[in-house]
Write a protein that binds this DNA or RNA. Sequence first.
RNA 1: GGAGGGUUACCGAAGUGGUCAUAACGGGGCGGUCUUGAAAACCGUUAGGGUGCAAGCCCACAAGAGUUCGAAUCUCUUACCCUCCUCCA
Length: 440
Amino acid sequence: MIDINLIREGSEAVAKTLAKRGYEIEQVSKMFAELLKLDAKKRKIQTEGENLRAERNRLNDQISKAKDATERTNLIAGTKVLSEKISKINIDKIEKKIFDIMAGIPNLPMEEVQSGGKEKNRVVETIGVKPTFDFKPKDHVELCTSLGLIDYERAAKISGRGTWVYTNMGARLEWALLNYFVDFHTRNGYEFIMPPHLLNYQSGYAAGQFPKFAENIFCTSAGAGIGTKGGKAPKFSDPDFRFLLPTSETAIINLHRDEIIPQDKLPIKYFGFSPCYRREIGNYGNSERGMIRGFQFHKIEQFIFCNKEDDEQYFLEIVSNAEELVRGLGLHARTVALAAGDVGGAMAKTYDIEVYIPSMTSIEGGFKEVSSCSTAQQYQARRAAIRTKRTTTEFVHTLNASGLATSRLIPAIVEQFQTADGRVRVPEVLQKYLGGAKFL
RNA sequence: GGAGGGUUACCGAAGUGGUCAUAACGGGGCGGUCUUGAAAACCGUUAGGGUGCAAGCCCACAAGAGUUCGAAUCUCUUACCCUCCUCCA
């Protein structure tokens, strides 16, 4: 949610900024005109209501002090009229309209963010060197299967498409990656968070998942289920409604929802671990075989709450942390500054770290995102009401970056580190977590 | 799942239809005055939101709805917490 004052004070400048995301200036201006009209109307109605209330409060005060029954009766009659008028004033409807428009406005890309869509993304950093092979390299699905790291077929049997089972050294490799990340962030002074995976509606609402993006989310409720008497689809209104978090970020933001964080607690640096559950509607294609995209994957997320002037500093910090993790594994990857149109709606600036997967070279050069590093500035904090108090209360800035997602690292690792004899070299930093194993 | 009890400020807690939410009373933290220093005492502060140039006004007693001229107080719904029973890794 952006600050409505920005639109009140300079709707043209805001429209111009949104145009960087590909919005039509004319359409945006029209929407703002409508919004400002509603806003003025809302404030007028609100003032009217408050004046009536003030008058009623005055009369009510007099009722208890009335000298005789006649005066009392007259005063009561007066307040009755006022109450009648007050009950007719309904501000909820107009407020909801304003909220709906505001909720639909994405965050404003920062000045340094390139205008335009994906094609304007810019590589800002190259990590490692592109591996070369003097034999015919295999793809990750083949390698993971032949080495017994992942069982795709049985995963389909027990769960369905878009899932996989980690088996044997595959499971240990996954575990090793997570350990490597946990140790790294802990060393850097971040606090480890393991949130519940099922969250309530309010958390989804504050994080912006509901009601607009509900179709991307798995939802549950106690009454839902096949063969259950009275089984039904989950509804928001269901007292047992929960949803499976799409990233631990959703849980971490909500940790401090509706709180005023004391200055001496800032910055708060967390890293969270959870599986990420996503429906991925319409996102499946042949190009994303194996574990490139699934309904459930593991991700460690860095998350920072800070004062606004520290935003830049911590943005650089979380990007460099994510790069450091990739570099530590010895993988070839790159960091890309996303153009405005490719930056997620809640974010003001995003750098993606993309790892190289040789078998996918034909698609965008074979680079796949393993970390998305962003600042939301005040956008998320405003919706979740997370503030701090200096001279007045102000919204904190929130920043988040994967650190990292494992499901795309395994394909990158097995493909980049494969040897002519069909084995895979274990990155040195992971060996201690794998009992010293040098090869898979 | 069953039966009770609760939710008011930083904490404890009073208030049971208007005269106590400018929140009684007790306690802790931080800052200040005073002091050679400390203690004590005193003052300020320790979570708010909306609107307005401002004075101010409105809202906030877990959340929502209702009764009433008027609700912290009465009624209903929901959430959360505690105790006991039941169940359980």
